[in-house]
């Protein structure tokens, strides 16, 4: 089924469409959320919050504003970051600022059932630190190009081309076709 049609049905509260979209993106959202909160139970909790929020705010999505995936990952990142700012989370968790998504991939012996897990692990091993930083900030943390530019102390143009090159490496590794 066409993504546009699925999204349209989802926006008119079609449960089947909702489930189909969930199955398409849930692992990705779970990965992003887990990378931020670093706790299975909290990640599960945030996952529920994200998809409940998506259902309720489905009408706010518009293709003009971006990809549906982008809309969803934005909700996930924001919900996870909100969680890390909550009092209870701060009391129980150490400072996570220095951690990156690659830690999870490197430390995970069993990358669940993802068929591309091995490829991604290889990719991460070969990945230059500059790639890790930029991917972490742009995709996992949801930084804007300006925020990334400021954090990494490099011009927006450099961020763009560096990110482009890093994602190309990833695509070559995964042999991605849509």
């Amino acid at each position: 089924m066409q993504l546009e049609l699925l999204v349209s049905k989802f926006q008119s509260k079609d449960e089947k469409a909702f489930e189909a979209l969930y199955n398409m993106y849930s692992d990705s959202m779970h990965g992003v959320i887990y990378n931020i909160v670093r706790d299975n139970d909290i990640a599960e909790e945030v996952m529920q919050d994200v998809f409940i929020k998506a259902w309720h705010n489905a009408s706010s999505y518009s293709a003009k504003k971006g990809r549906f995936f982008t809309w969803l990952i934005n909700i996930a990142r924001n919900a996870a970051i909100d969680k890390t700012r909550s009092k209870t989370f701060k009391n129980s968790k150490k400072n996570l600022d220095a951690t990156f998504f690659v830690d999870i991939l490197e430390n995970q012996d069993n990358l669940n059932s993802q068929t591309d897990a091995i490829g991604i692990k290889k990719f991460v091993k070969k990945l230059a630190k500059k790639c890790i930083e930029v991917i972490e900030l742009l995709y996992f943390k949801g930084y804007t190009q300006k925020e990334a530019s400021k954090t990494l102390e490099m011009p927006i143009g450099t961020i763009k081309t560096r990110n482009r090159n890093c994602i190309n490496e990833l695509r070559n590794m995964l042999d991605v076709s849509p």
Partner: peptide, 15 residues
């Protein structure tokens, strides 16, 4: 598609 696969790889469990 590449980003979805990358981010999904960091999911600790099947979701």
């Amino acid at each position: 598609a590449a980003i979805i696969k990358l981010t999904a790889a960091t999911s600790p469990t099947d979701s």
